[in-house]
Design a protein around this nucleic acid. Structure first.
Lengths: 183, 183
DNA sequence: TTGCGCATGTAACCAGTTACATGATTTC
DNA sequence: GAAATCATGTAACTGGTTACATGCGCAA
């Protein structure tokens, strides 16, 4: 039931904001830095069809505007439920290591679906998981630094700094949400 | 000829350092934070077979150690040539946006294959491409900030900060290489 | 003798890439 | 009427995921 690709969830998130056609979605991916998804029709149209087959979106042809037929998609209640389930998954180590972008996507749409309180909880979980991961990474880097060529060492260092930057971001975002909830 | 996956190049890079078996490679992916590649046999063994079919690596069974047969792989001259070609590709915008990890992988093995001078050139190209990309991103964020919910805005902000952190890293790495070449 | 670590592999499934195809409408 | 843009779609190919299968050698 919830075996959707990340692209599928990105589409659900956008369709939760407003009904859109496949072409609209392509333009969004082409013009905004969201995710890094491809705007190719070979990715988006099949993904929309899959979502429709699973009952997560519904599409209808609009012919009113005189242009060529546009098939506009809406998210269904079932689709919204699936989207929320995806957003609610606990954050595990492997999400941090190999699916950070998916985590950020889950977060990006969280305000709309869950509101500030749960979004804040998500950020705290994210920060916690990050802070438990980074020390081991640093340790690994320190332990193996002398065996590695300079470029290898620097590449690893880049990864560590990447995680550290994300942790700083998460902490700033936490205070941003805390301020908002008090004010 | 050069239609290899990123995993294939990661394998080539590791095999350029020393001959290894599939199992060795799996252990490396499982125990070090390199790339974020899967250590699953379903990814690595087929990838090794493909490399072998294309003549980029060669494998031979070692039976000396009394354990079960180990197939150990070496990189071939053709494999090294392909690896260097991959590392030498110019850095384009899309590499920055959607394939940063691949760029970091190319860099990680560059010391061994090309030496300090060309590695430094790579870093300069990387930094240049990043600095040409970031202002537009910042501009986009600033232009659309008020239409977006807080979480969406922060998610975008995270992306921008990510690029900025990488740029700082690149600049520090450049000075590291410059120091090394003078000293 | 049971079970674990070493070691290699296969098969079904799924989704993204690339390239191609089609046709309507607007603009020059 | 030619070209650009809007708009949707398909098909071949490729490679990763997941799960399963196999078999050796060693230690408890």
């Amino acid at each position: 039931m919830n075996n959707d690709s990340v692209l599928g969830y990105a589409l659900l998130g956008l369709l939760h904001q407003q009904p859109l056609s496949g072409y609209d979605l392509r333009k969004i991916f082409a013009s905004t830095p969201i995710g890094g998804f491809s705007d190719s029709p070979g990715a988006i149209y099949p993904a929309l069809r899959r979502l429709q087959e699973r009952g997560l979106v519904r599409g209808e042809v609009q012919k009113s505007t005189g242009l060529r037929k546009r098939r506009v998609f809406w998210i269904t209640p079932k689709g919204l439920a699936s989207f929320k389930t995806w957003q609610s998954k606990p954050i595990v180590r492997d999400d941090i290591v190999r699916r950070v972008e998916e985590l950020l996507l889950r977060f990006a749409f969280m305000d709309q679906t869950f509101g500030a309180e749960r979004t804040l909880a998500f950020l705290r979980e994210f920060a916690k998981e990050l802070s438990s991961y980074i020390p081991g990474l640093r340790k690994h880097l320190h332990a193996h630094a002398n065996e590695m060529p300079l470029s290898g060492r620097l590449a690893l260092e880049s990864g560590v700094q990447d995680y550290e930057a994300r942790l700083r971001w998460a902490r700033r975002s936490i205070t941003a949400y805390e301020r908002r909830m008090k004010g």
